[in-house]
Every structure is written in C-alpha cells, then in structure tokens.
C-alpha cells in the first residue's frame, strides 16, 4: 500500500483509542481514508465498528488520539458530512412524513433559526425521486416498509449535499431490490469523487460493493484496497475461529 499524502485524504485518524472502563473498545486505530472511495468497516459484533464511525463524526469523545476531516476538526466541517443512522436509533412513530425527514438533511446548511425554503423543498423532492420514493413523500414513517424507510434516510443523507458520507449498516432489514438501489447510489456518489464510509456486515458482498476495507476487531487488523486486504490470513485474525465457516462461502450470519 502506497503512502497517502495528507491532502489526498478525506479523513485522517491517528492513534484513536476509545475505552469503557478498563475495556478498550477501540485500540490505537490509524486510518487514512483517501478521497473518492467506497470504504467498508468490517468486523465481528462488538468489534467497535459503530464506535469508530461515531468517534470519527465527533459523537464520542475518545480516550486518546485525534481525527481530522479535510485537514480540519469535525466542528468546522459539519456541512461536508452526510450521515445515515442505524435503523434501531430512530423513533418510527414520530409524527412526521417522508418529505419532512428528508428536509432535516438541509438543517445543517440552514443553521440556527432559519426555516427551510422552497429551494430546500425542491432539493428534498429531488432526493426522494433519486431513491424512488417520490410517490411516498407524504406518508408517515410507520406506514413505510423497512426498505422504504431506509431509502428515505438515504435521501436525507443525499440532500445534505456532503463530500463525505457515513452510513451505519444501511443494508440491515432491507429487501434485495432496495439493497441494489442503495449500493447503486453509493457508487454514483463515489464516481462524483465523494467519499462514502459504510459499516458493513456481509463478507459475501464486500468485494462487489466496496473499493477499500478496514478489518476491525478492537484493533485495526488490516486496511487498504479490498483486493489487497481480503486475505485468509487477515480474515482469520479478524474473525478468529469462525473463519472456517466463512471459507465455505456461506453467507455470514452474525
């Protein structure tokens, strides 16, 4: 793996350590994410994938280490980042409709007190159109299926008009058609030289979907382009005993 220059990177993580009491959740992670790649963070349950994502986004205070985004601290870069949360973290009974949820993606650009304008609404409708949800714009969230809900949240991330996207397990609880639609859009973003970081579960689809991968199990086991990193040796270190199971080319059930 060639060394990346700092200004070729969207995210630089140095010596990141996150701990809960005596247990390190993440230990001494170094990560340089180049611009314009589709990166997966992969590892077993409890490996700290979501923690890594949330620490990069500045939502968790690390015990040590630092993170810079486009050469600056996260606080100065909030409008260059788009975010799609894990499914479980959302209140689906909230009284709001699909269009309104997508509009929330514009709030960062609006800042305090300013209300969304017609232009924001148009952007939101366009984003809903891109994910194929235009006809559902006035549906309440709990009237949508799992896949449809996920598309709405993808639309919300798109409308943030960011250069760097973070997505926490976007394929969980989603039908095959939606999964294809989502990955299609993510690749499209990558082709517009945006960076997309995804917490991912499924080793089967890893090499089809992603360019780069970080194998994580508290420590970073391996990091780089998928074809270099996805070796038996690395997977064995990451997943330990369950590796044999994976070798049989079966879908990975966590």
């Amino acid at each position: 793996m060639k060394d990346l220059l700092d200004d070729e990177c969207s995210v630089i993580v140095q010596d990141l350590t996150v701990a809960y009491k005596e247990k390190p959740v993440l230990w001494d992670i170094d990560l340089k994410i180049p611009k314009g790649v589709l990166l997966a963070i992969v590892g077993p349950n409890g490996a700290g994938k979501t923690t890594l994502l949330r620490s990069i986004m500045g939502l968790i205070k690390p015990a040590a280490g630092n993170v810079s985004i486009f050469g600056q601290s996260i606080k100065k870069q909030k409008n260059t980042i788009g975010y799609m949360p894990q499914r479980g973290s959302v209140d689906w009974d909230f009284p709001t409709d699909a269009l309104d949820v997508v509009m929330m993606g514009r709030y960062g650009h609006l800042g305090w007190f300013r209300r969304p304008t017609k232009a924001d609404k148009k952007l939101a409708l366009d984003a809903l159109d891109r994910v194929g949800m235009l006809d559902f714009s006035d549906r309440q969230l709990n009237q949508l299926s799992g896949g449809q809900q996920q598309r709405v949240f993808l639309a919300r991330a798109l409308v943030q008009d960011a250069d760097l996207y973070f997505m926490d397990e976007p394929f969980v609880g989603v039908d095959a058609v939606t999964e294809q639609a989502i990955i299609g859009l993510l690749k499209e973003l990558r082709n517009q030289s945006k960076t997309v970081v995804v917490v991912h579960h499924d080793l089967q689809t890893l090499s089809d979907y992603f360019d780069w991968v970080s194998l994580l199990n508290v420590r970073q086991i391996a990091y780089g382009p998928v074809k270099d990193v996805l070796t038996n040796e690395n997977l064995r270190t990451t997943y330990g005993g369950r590796r044999a199971f994976l070798m049989a080319n079966q879908p990975f059930v966590d």
Binding site: L59, N79, P85, D91, T96, V101, G108
Partner: peptide, 10 residues
Amino acid sequence: FDRGLAAMLG
C-alpha cells in the same frame, strides 16, 4: 427525532 444527526450538524 434524531439526536445523532442534530449533534453532528452542530
């Protein structure tokens, strides 16, 4: 509705 996004957007 979404504390995480709110925190990220400042």
